[in-house]
Design a protein around this nucleic acid. Structure first.
Length: 270
DNA sequence: ACCCAGGCATTGG
DNA sequence: CCAATGCATGGG
């Protein structure tokens, strides 16, 4: 049986919690004890198997996507060692041991997903995003592929309104679908330049750009300023915080992992 | 009915 | 430069 050995530490339930926390996530579907995700034209199934993850099918196409989805590339060991110097993170890294923030494998999907999540609750965002997937994505086995830019180029503004998009967000998504973007080139740039290029696009502000750095590019120092959930979490764990932007310096160079641990730690409050 | 929720562009000072 | 405004949905 094809079983992948994740880097240690690794906890499947904590790592995949996000795919269940806000209702179903059709693009990363939790069903029957496994995550189902479409890679290329195939459905991939991931489920816990002892200390590893059973992945079917497992090959050169699916392996890197699974690695992204289950956060394999994060330096958890380094983070945990560093976290010993901060009482809050020391507790969180113990309580959430093995939590690897899931990365979003596809850049276009990452941006569209963030746009759906702007300003509204993640329950609302996931509901709208799922309707987008059902309308413009493709069913493969139990899972769904997220709509491609090419496919969304044929979507009408009114179609998106019918799915619950605001006029603005419909414009953003259709505009992005038409924008010629070189994501490979983008990925080779330093954080600040990635942000500058993304923010120049209509509908993408600092918050969306930071989450792209954090969730798609896995940049260690990404720190999603302006995120209301992160604001609440930071203030809950560090009550004396004046400025969430400034406190990011304190977590350098582990801002990304810190943000994820604070958010998940707040969500799974003991 | 109302408020808040993992923002953003636009407008007006 | 900063403040005010509208936006659509889901959950409480």
């Amino acid at each position: 049986m094809p079983v992948l050995r994740p880097p240690k530490p690794f906890d499947f339930d904590l790592t995949t919690e996000r795919f269940r926390a806000f209702g179903p996530d059709l693009a990363n579907l939790w069903e029957d004890g496994a995550i189902h995700r479409v890679v290329g034209a195939r459905e991939v199934r991931m489920e816990p198997a002892g200390k590893g993850v059973r992945v079917e099918p497992l090959d050169d196409e699916t392996r890197p996507v699974v690695g992204k989805l289950l956060g394999f590339e994060f330096d958890l060991a380094g983070f945990y060692e560093w976290a010993q110097g901060d009482s809050v993170l020391k507790e969180l890294t113990t309580r959430l041991a093995g939590f690897r923030p899931p990365l979003a494998p596809d850049p276009f999907e990452t941006l569209v997903t963030s746009i759906t999540a702007q300003q509204v609750s993640l329950f609302a965002a996931f509901a709208i995003r799922n309707r987008l997937i059902e309308r413009f994505g493709r069913r493969v086995g139990r899972g769904w592929s997220f709509p491609t830019a090419k496919r969304l180029r044929r979507a009408r503004h009114d179609d998106l309104l019918a799915l619950g998009f605001s006029n603005r967000k419909a414009e953003y998504v259709l505009g992005l679908a038409r924008e010629p973007l070189d994501f490979a080139a983008l990925a080779s740039l330093p954080d600040a330049e990635v942000k500058a290029q993304l923010v120049s696009l209509r509908g993408i502000g600092e918050w969306t750009a930071e989450w792209f750095l954090a969730r798609h590019l896995a940049r260690p120092r990404a720190w999603p300023i302006g995120d209301v959930a992160l604001d609440k979490a930071v203030r809950a764990f560090y009550p004396k915080t004046h400025d969430v932007r400034a406190i990011g310096e304190r977590f350098d160079p582990f801002q990304n992992l810190t943000a994820h641990y604070l958010l998940t730690g707040a969500r799974l409050a003991p």
